[in-house]
Amino acid sequence: MLRFAANRLFQLVVICFLISIFAFLLVHLLPGDPTLAILGPNDTPAARAVLLHQLGLNKGLLSQYGTWITNIFHGNLGASFLTKQTVTNALGVAVPIDLELIVVSQVLALIFAIPMALVAALRPNKAFDKVATTSTFGMLSLPTFVAGPLLVLVFAVTFKWVPATGFNRLSQGLGPNLKSVILPSVALAIGSITVYYRLLRADLIATLQEDYVTMARSKGLSTRYILLRHVMRPSSFSLLAGAGISIGTLFTGAFVVEVLFQLPGIGYQLVQAIYSRDYLVVQGMALVAAVAFVVVNFAVDFLLTVLDPRVRRA
């Protein structure tokens, strides 16, 4: 177990190192003089010199990387050349929004997916299962850039129940806050419901055919007791793995929803930085988002092996 953990941790470090190299080399992809590309032709030589120093472009590649990564370990991810805001500050604003979106959307998804899967798995291929499976199949074909506008059209434009765009902080009251995150969360939950439902249903059906379930039935235990006490836990590993992937992806993949609803999370800020060609912000944010994605994935992977020893042998 310890060896396994050490092995995994080593892999994580290697991947993070590779991500940092990738992010570092991005600036070198810029055509021509990077300082000119970053600042534009109208900036002062003084600003160029500052940037040149910050990027360390006049030194060798290896020492440039050294300076860059040392700065990052000191919490200096660079700063925007347009707004002078540091990436660390921007992240401080963005991360809570992303966390709220992730929590609300995933809770919503689980609230719908788990009962649906339980009912469907008890009587596979019967009416409820067919309806639920077909509708999740339809949801599978609804990407967020299709589902989002649809939700806005129905709930914000037609019924006017919630505002179409904008974000209200929790400090502005729970009601306004929830109103501003509910539509984006539903848009994000649609994809997750499908995945969770399908994973859990398949595992539940497989577990229900195990001998010990028949045994429990013959002992006269109620279906509800069997489902919740005997079947749910061994059937939830794929669900957990799926949730890990979903959460990791949401950290980096809520771009469409955040832009559509104008929620200033990581995705929104990153896209704005891309529009305004704020290269250093893009570099810094991408680095953080990619590392977060990798760390979440590895954490879930690790959690799974702790909960289910079968994974270790596979």
């Binding site: 590779l18 990738f22 991005l26 993949g253 990153l270 891309i274 570099q283 988002a289 994605f293 990798v294």
Partner: peptide, 11 residues
């Protein structure tokens, strides 16, 4: 290990 959409956007 790289998040695909993010990598493509950034590149």
């Amino acid at each position: 290990a790289f998040p695909a959409l993010l990598a493509i956007m950034v590149i």
